[in-house]
Design a protein around this nucleic acid. Structure first.
Lengths: 124, 124
DNA sequence: GTCGTATGTCTTGTCACGCAAGATACCTTG
DNA sequence: CAAGGTATCTTGCGTGACAAGACATACGAC
């Protein structure tokens, strides 16, 4: 099993990098919907839930979380156990849930438009 | 009818701007597939074919076309009539057709992964 | 005739953001 | 104690969409 620490080099020539633009916020908010999670957990969760189709490195994720926090879309809670590495837990706020909904809608509209445009000839 | 000259301000807070990243090349190559077209024509064609769902300004398009040309994905032909504004026509090259296919595949994989991830609860 | 508007091309500068790479620290297992 | 997994954060780079502006030709209205 590949650990997140073994940083997977993301292909340069690929458009995958650009596709993450704009979808990453949506993805993170979506992953937080079922309940709070900490950064490292989100990275592994995303890789697992998409069978590696969508991946992200921690160097990418942490800035996103910071942005979401500043925007008021997520709340933060530190868990500092006596023994063990401290974890920073993120939870959706009401505004975050609203944003999640808005982004989901926007994404659907875009994906639909793309599908219609690229649509394999089948007219109408 | 809205003319392309009346530049539609693209919403700043929207993710639409980011979503175009990576898809724009694919979109342009796709629009060139049926046959050659000139820049201005592509702008209007995209707006029309997607009922405005996907739009692009000429300031965005021309750099894309230049990139595609440099990459060898499109060929160029000037049409300079005695009377009238000169037009620069673009056509897909073989490499461009190949790229179009590759990008389409990549896009589909990404869109599918997103759909699976966001999938409305229906588990498994 | 000239003013506005549509057609058509191109360039400059700005800004956002994904990412590689590196730093730091703790814990476990051999 | 040395590796490697867990966990966080920061710096710097490159890419690319876009607004704004410039420029030129054509055509209509006034």
């Amino acid at each position: 099993m590949e650990s997140p620490t073994a940083r997977t080099e993301i292909r340069k020539g690929s458009i995958a990098r650009e596709l993450r633009r704009g979808t990453l916020e949506l993805i993170v908010l979506h992953l937080l919907e079922p309940g709070e999670a900490y950064g490292y957990e989100i990275v592994t969760k995303l890789t697992r839930e998409t069978q590696g189709a969508l991946e992200v490195t921690d160097g990418t994720l942490y800035p996103v979380l910071y942005r979401l926090e500043r925007a008021g879309f997520v709340g933060v809670r530190w868990d500092t156990p006596e023994r063990g590495v401290p974890r920073k837990y993120y939870q959706l706020t009401d505004a975050g849930r609203q944003e999640l909904h808005a982004l989901t809608t926007e994404w659907s509209a875009f994906a639909d438009a793309m599908a219609r445009l690229l649509g394999t000839g089948h007219p109408r």
